[in-house]
Design a binder for these strands. Structure first.
Lengths: 392, 392
DNA sequence: TTATTTAATTCGCATTCCGTTAAAAATACC
DNA sequence: GGTATTTTTAACGGAATGCGAATTAAATAA
């Protein structure tokens, strides 16, 4: 009950960045008395800070000046990570989700044994924490954003292109290794929350994000919450079937996945670039040089994505769809065919409901999104009672 | 605040049918004290009734006997309707959703002017209410289940096969005609709630329903609530694109819609049967007689549905999918090809997550579902204050 | 009849919120 | 410096809610 109000006040402060009590009272519909009580307790717990300056209204405001409240950056620290097949990116953030340190490991972990991958992640987390001048026991939570089908609630990785095994309880594995609560989440869900907090969806509580990376992921925000399947399952767009071909089902991944566009023969012309994580950058250069085979692949991929996108909009009817991921780097041929296929495929009845936004987020943003997943769980936990103790 | 607990208690009583206070306390995690207070107020408002008999535990139970509580059937009456292109079905139900009277009008309203359709519906509602020995002012709410894309929140019908016009504010139109609060909802959403209350999803708060009628609809139940797109938009599965053909996009409706299976030439062999609303029944007979053209159409439709179904399961990962609608009457060729295409198309990573259930619901059940939509809004409305006054 | 058991209610207490009022704080205007 | 203005805090009363403990109610068992 009060927990709900507390959370609302805290979230209002986070959204505003810096806000006076009377504004909070306005936005949350709580009385100033209640806001005063709640903010007092938040200040007491060290979750927020008061600042005397910073009142941005017209300079000559009479009366008692507002006291601006903001999140206490030091109230918690979390680690977020984006784990991809050819690189890992780690960030340490403060309580606001601001990045304190970044670490990128460019290495191919494709289908190594779990132990090896876990070793690398553990190492990355520890190094990134040290880079932020912190010790691991000062970290409240870790969240790993992984491609594939992830069961957030149970911490299981159902399938992932980076794991040989399936159904791994990776959250437990990493929690034990690090000695810090570690959760797993789909990388698409992570970037979805990153856009909700910092990116192109700050103003919306309902939206859909499509990530076009090695795997094709989906994040659905509904009422400010991630829409997760039963069991907290994440979605894998690449598994969508676009039709029946001569050899059975034709899945989106086979038309628009990274390996479908660049070719996946180990001896292919992209093999070296892919190994180095520069596949798409390389492809972009070739497309600029009018490499017709590649342009054709990009166009086919764009068409497939456009159709899949239209289907998703048909099902979810969000006001905005954000497209992110390395495939956007393919440039015009890909984007134009995507847009065209989308506008052909979108049913007239919901034309105009949805706005398309393309965004080339950096890897750091993905990792930051994972940090946001961790922070949201901290925000909702009852700090006064059982949650992690704030800095005293 | 208390409204939430009140609703939970009321819903617990509804689900149980007949339940003692102590059981409510068990299931809702509320103290017996609170349950006592809330049930007292519900009794006071006439929403529930107490019965001394009916304790079904072992006969020789010691101690004070339980007093069973149940919904007061007379606390409200609503009208639910299923409006289809070739028929309208109306039901009047009591507060429990039990049907008091039914009325079926077999008439083709295909693309008549709005006024004509509204006339027919108004007439149907009035007649059905009279059949239940009631007057219209004893009806608390009316809900119309329509095919197409419906915006429940605003009451607008975006597109519907039964309307020529698009974007009609049909809820307002019918509210004014009847003098009773009238809401509109997608027929697929209605049958989804019907299954949640009375049918094959009584035990689940998360599930997906696919309706295969003239239009192909979808209902997603998420945490006991209908998942509606932004603006309360309903989904239209028929608009899903399954691929690109020679003449542009190939939509599910063009493969698996009623007219796709039976053919839609006005001079076709089914024309007369369709006009009479017996298209599918007729088709079933022909399939039994091994009509190869029709069997082929049914198989193609089944394949298309199976693929679309797999895509929906990929996106929502529900524990159960219920398939309903007239197309199920096509029988083996359709169902077998649907099942086969589904199991080919479902990605291995989520195989086993979802159970398929086929259900041949009667028209009355669809209308009852619309009544449930109306009842749910009554349940959630604050009776003590502004809601419709219960019988005193 | 008395004891036992179970269900439901009553009573008292704690929490939380709101509204009102008042006071304190901090600044601008005169 | 005094007054006006605005924000914030504090204090009090009232209302609503929920829980625990004790009490009452109603039946069976001994």
């Amino acid at each position: 009950m009060r927990a709900i109000n507390r959370f609302n006040v805290l979230d209002t402060i986070r959204r505003a960045g810096s806000i006076a009590r009377i504004e909070i009272s306005d936005r949350t519909q709580l009385s100033t008395t209640t806001v005063s009580a709640i903010t007092a307790s938040l200040l007491d717990d060290g979750l927020i800070l008061a600042r005397t300056e910073g009142d941005l209204r017209e300079a000559a405001a009479r009366g008692r000046p507002r006291v601006m409240l903001e999140l206490n950056p030091d109230a918690a620290r979390v680690v977020g990570a984006k784990i991809a097949a050819n690189r890992m990116v780690f960030v340490v953030t403060d309580f606001r989700g601001e990045v304190l340190s970044t670490l990128t490991l460019a290495l191919r972990v494709d289908r190594q044994p779990i132990g090896v991958i876990a070793d690398l992640i553990e190492d990355g987390v520890r190094r990134c924490v040290v880079d932020a001048n912190l010790a691991l026991d000062e970290i409240d939570s870790v969240c790993l954003g992984l491609p594939g089908v992830i069961e957030h609630r149970t911490g299981h990785v159902r399938t992932s292109p980076i794991f040989r095994e399936s159904g791994v309880d990776f959250a437990k594995e990493m929690s034990e290794r690090l000695g810090v609560t570690t959760i797993v989440e789909s990388d698409a869900h992570a970037i979805t929350l990153a856009h909700h907090w910092f990116g192109r969806a700050r103003d919306l509580d309902d939206m859909v994000l499509v990530s076009l990376e090695q795997t094709l992921g989906l994040g659905v925000l509904h009422g400010g919450q991630l829409f997760r399947g039963a069991g907290g399952l994440s979605h894998n767009l690449g598994d969508l079937v676009l039709g029946m071909g001569p050899q059975g089902t034709v899945r989106l991944a086979s038309l628009a996945g990274e390996s479908a566009i660049l070719g996946d023969q180990p001896s292919g012309r992209f093999a070296e670039a892919i190994r180095l994580g520069r596949g798409m950058a390389h492809a972009k250069t070739l497309i600029a040089a009018e490499d017709n085979a590649l342009i054709g692949a990009a166009i086919r991929a764009g068409e497939a994505c456009g159709i899949a996108l239209a289907n998703i909009v048909t099902l979810f009817a969000p006001p905005r769809v954000i497209l992110v991921g390395s495939s956007l780097a393919l440039g015009q041929p890909f984007l134009d065919s995507l847009r065209e296929a989308y506008s052909l495929a979108i049913p007239p009845s919901i034309k105009g409901v949805t706005e398309l936004v393309f965004d080339q987020s950096t890897d750091e943003t993905w990792a930051q999104g994972a940090a946001v997943v961790a922070l949201r769980e901290l925000y909702e936990s009852p700090w006064g009672t059982t949650g992690p103790a704030p800095a005293l």
